[in-house]
Structure formats: structure tokens, C-alpha cells
């Protein structure tokens, strides 16, 4: 198994197997280019200027976990039921990070093009939004209410149909 060195924006090097690194499509295409240029003998160093060390380490944890024996690169098609369940638990624990870290992970997953991780992060952010009132969402994510007063009331009224509880309350 060939190893590659992934260099983060702050110059930290991470040695990983090419299999794990290839989970990122961006890295995979870079590797192909480098291999063509430098041949198979020399060590391959892939610079990743858009990913900081801390985030890269986290991304690599995901890649290594998801390339362990029994998993395949794309879809976990051949994964056994037990292994799949273990991975789900691992993913859940992996997502126990701060909101800031989650944003960085999403950006990194997007830049590195790791579909599984991107999906997982999107779901993680969606979980943070789910079940919250507009005020809570604003508070949690630091969003600024840029509606005018009348506009806000209008939007609130148009969205009543979807919010069953509020609508029932309004009826009462």
C-alpha cells in the first residue's frame, strides 16, 4: 500500500495510505497528476492550501475509518450489517463537535470532495436546525433578522399552514 503526505495550509504534514486519501476525489485527481509527473518511486506530497491542520486531521479520521477492511470507497455496498451499524455509531460520535468545527468540516469536505463526509456534515447541521423556532435558529447561528416588521408578520402568517401547532393555537 502506497503512502502519501497531505500538507495542510499551515504546513503540517499527515501521512496516510493512498487508499484513505483517495476517498477525497480532489486528492485522488491530484495524486493521479503527481504520479504521472513524478513516477511511482518518489514520495507524493499533496498540498491542501484551503484546509487547516486541525480540520485535516478530523477529515483524515473519517477517511481512515471509512477505508478499513470491509468498507468500499464509494458506497458501503459490501459492508456487513454489523460493520454498517458500527460505522453509524462511529459517525454519530464523530459528529459531536462544536458548530464552528462543523462549518470548517463542511467546507473541507466540500473542497476535498468527500461525498460521504459532506452528507454527514449537512445532516449534522440540519440536526442543529431541526425542532427550533425561528428565534432559536437566529440565536444559535447568529443570524440577523433583516425583514421589515410588516414583511416578517406576513411571512409568519404564510408559514402558519406548515406549522401545525401554531395554526391550531391561532385557531383557538
Amino acid at each position: 500500500m502506497r503512502t502519501v503526505i497531505l500538507r495542510s495550509s499551515d504546513g503540517a504534514d499527515h501521512i496516510v495510505s493512498s487508499e484513505a486519501a483517495s476517498l477525497s476525489r480532489t486528492v485522488q485527481s491530484l495524486l493521479e497528476e503527481l504520479e504521472a509527473k513524478e513516477g511511482e518511486e518518489s514520495p507524493l506530497i499533496v498540498p491542501l492550501p484551503n484546509v487547516c491542520d486541525c480540520t485535516l486531521r478530523k477529515v483524515l479520521q473519517y477517511c481512515i475509518q471509512h477505508t478499513e477492511p470491509g468498507t468500499n470507497l464509494t458506497g458501503r455496498i459490501h459492508v456487513s450489517e454489523t460493520r454498517r451499524r458500527d460505522l453509524e455509531v462511529w459517525d454519530r460520535n464523530y459528529m459531536l463537535v462544536s458548530t464552528d468545527e462543523l462549518y470548517h468540516l463542511v467546507m473541507a469536505a466540500h473542497y476535498l470532495n468527500v461525498p460521504g463526509l459532506l452528507e454527514l456534515c449537512c445532516e449534522g447541521i440540519a440536526n442543529l436546525i431541526r425542532g427550533k423556532s425561528p428565534q432559536h435558529v437566529r440565536q444559535h447561528f447568529g443570524l440577523v433578522n433583516n425583514f421589515e416588521k410588516a414583511e416578517e408578520e406576513d411571512i409568519r402568517r404564510t408559514n402558519l399552514w406548515a406549522l401545525v401547532d401554531e395554526k391550531e393555537l391561532a385557531k383557538k
Binding site: 436546525i129 425542532g131 427550533k132 425561528p134 433578522n145 433583516n146 416578517e152 408559514n159 406548515a162
Partner: peptide, 12 residues
């Protein structure tokens, strides 16, 4: 749907 409706009311 609840989440989308709530989110739609947060900002433009």
C-alpha cells in the same frame, strides 16, 4: 417542513 418554515422566517 416545520424546520423549513421556521428557517424561512429567520432571514431573507
Amino acid at each position: 417542513i416545520d424546520g423549513l418554515s421556521a428557517l424561512a422566517q429567520t432571514c431573507r
